[in-house]
């Protein structure tokens, strides 16, 4: 990764930025079927901040997350995790970066069904062959409150419990950024609240940067800032969002679009 270090000087000017996309363009298809999922988007995701990315279906919010997290590549522009530009990495480097510096929480199918709860939590560490920090792990398990379920298989857990395990997995390797893609999409409001509370604690108590894609204003209410995407463009941002304010803002967009 030494090759990317000289370029990191630009980011040194903005310290505490955990992840960043600059002038990001993502185009799917060609010609008549061309879809511009991201259209010159520039965003910083600061460390120790909880950012919610909002927008209607097809707004490009998931694409933004996938490109920022190194799951997908940009058509133009750049994406950074800390001082590393993702576009310069091959598949192997990108994979290693994901397991060492990024945590993921997906909407569904977050856990490997053949592994126990504990094995799922330490999966990225085990894949790297790294020894887990036992104290850290214990505190994480304590936080998600599933200490008695460590040897169960995911199939034996409820949906909310599975998502809590996913959050623990995402934090186990102390990553720079945690990306959460609709983490509460399949949960009822109470269990969803538990999961969001966990992500909040990851920011407040552990100093992680959390980026969450959601269309749920209540979920966005847990974030420090909310970004609004529409048609692949960043159209608005809101600091200290609340569910009501987010809902109003979104209604306003919908009125404007219709």
């Amino acid at each position: 990764m030494s090759a990317t270090e000289p370029r990191a000087t630009t980011l040194d000017l903005v310290p505490d930025v955990a992840a960043r996309v600059a002038d990001a363009v993502k185009v799917y298809g060609v010609g008549a079927t061309e879809v511009r999922a991201l259209d010159h988007v520039t965003v910083d995701f600061p460390a120790a901040r909880f950012t919610a990315v909002m927008g209607p279906s097809g707004s490009g919010k998931s694409t933004l997350m996938h490109c920022a997290a190194g799951l997908d590549t940009l058509s133009a522009g750049s994406a950074w995790i800390g001082g590393t530009e993702l576009g310069t990495l091959n598949d192997r480097r990108l994979t290693l970066l994901r397991r060492e510096r990024i945590g993921f929480v997906f909407q569904a199918f977050n856990l490997v069904p053949t592994l126990t709860v504990r094995e799922n939590i330490t999966l990225p560490l085990d894949l790297a062959g790294a020894a887990p920090d036992q104290a850290w792990l214990d505190s994480l398990i304590d936080v998600i409150g599933l200490g008695d379920r460590l040897h169960h298989r995911p199939g034996e857990l409820s949906g909310g419990q599975q998502q809590r395990v996913a959050v623990a997995r995402a934090l186990a390797g102390r990553p720079q950024v945690v990306f959460a893609d609709e983490p509460t999409g399949n949960l009822d409001s109470r269990t969803g609240g538990e999961v969001l509370g966990l992500l909040r604690r990851a920011v407040d108590e552990m100093g992680r940067c959390v980026v969450m894609v959601t269309h749920d204003p209540t979920a966005a209410g847990y974030a420090d800032q909310a970004l609004f995407l529409a048609d692949g463009r960043l159209v608005d941002r809101m600091d200290a969002p609340t569910a009501d304010r987010v809902l109003d803002r979104m209604k306003a967009f919908e009125r404007r679009q219709s």
Binding site: D91, T95, L96, R98, F106, F109, N110, P124
Partner: peptide, 16 residues
């Protein structure tokens, strides 16, 4: 498919 994708996302290399 989904399970394999998940493994890749959380850091399983192609070789692994």
């Amino acid at each position: 498919t989904r399970e394999l994708g998940l493994l890749r996302a959380v850091g399983q290399t192609r070789g692994q």
